[in-house]
Simulated assay, not measured.
Amino acid sequence: MIQGKSVLAIIPARGGSKGVPQKNIRYLSGKPLIAWTIQEAKKSNYIDRIVVSTDDERIAEVANSWGAEVPFMRPPELAQDNTPGMAPILHAMKMIPGYDYIVELQPTSPLRTVEDIDSCLEQCIEQNVDSCVSVTLTDKSPYWMYSLSECKELIPVITKNNTITRRQDSPDVFVLNGAVFVAKSAWLEHTGNFLHEETIGFVMPKERSIDLDTTLDFALAEAIIKEEKRSEWQ
């Protein structure tokens, strides 16, 4: 609990990953991908219950073995390629009602730490807002992005400020990193989304913001973890 408010953590993990088959239980540096998220969530000072929403029996077994609950299996219609990302979260909230705050933790963010989770919750509470989500500085500023016309002409994505001529002068731009989503339950049920006009951002460093979607992402995460271990030994 945090300031007397109960907290439910939901880890969405469907079995039908296309890019990397069985991605959520693929091994990363010696343990299943989903285990990284479960372990950090278990360290939280505030999370009261950790549940995994999955349609896959193998994922359910792995999640249970690492200490998360799988109190229900996700219906097949909520585990399709075109299923909206919020659908499994709202379904889990209906299956397990009664919590004041919801924290969504996607298993594809294995480098997120318990400090990130708890700090995002604390920021949401301290600023008395309805929702707080994790973000990180983007490497590619939209001020230097273009679309192409049929004739291959460059069309600026952002045209409001054409006075920026140097990359160093462009303002900081943040992107969702998918690591931590926090919201008041009643508000989330009403809006149906963590992202709204009231949502604020919790800034995470780039090195903990990697989102695993491809085999190349797994290789990068492996390299980061090995480098961190090497630094700890020195």
Rank of each mutant, 00 (worst) to 15 (best):
I117E: 06
D48N: 15
K140C: 08
K184C: 03
Q106E: 11
I200V: 14
L137I: 11
T199Q: 07
M204F: 03
G178Q: 04
S185F: 06
I164G: 05
L28E: 02
R230S: 12
R230V: 00
V133Q: 00
H91F: 15
L137M: 11
R49P: 12
S185C: 07
V129E: 03
D217T: 10
I158M: 14
V135Q: 03
V20A: 11
N162C: 03
Q168D: 14
R208S: 01
T138D: 13
K226N: 14
H91E: 13
F218Y: 14
Y143W: 13
P205V: 02
C120S: 14
L212S: 04
T199S: 15
T159W: 02
E197W: 02
W66A: 09
G4H: 02
V135N: 05
E207H: 10
I47N: 00
V203G: 03
I224Y: 10
K5M: 10
A68E: 09
I210E: 11
A60I: 04
T163R: 14
L195R: 12
P12T: 12
P76Y: 00
L28Q: 04
V7N: 09
F181A: 00
K5D: 04
K184G: 15
S149E: 05
E61P: 00
I117Q: 04
A179F: 04
P110F: 04
V103Q: 11
P84T: 13
V133R: 11
N162H: 09
M145T: 12
E198S: 15
L188Q: 02
K42S: 14
F181M: 07
A221T: 14
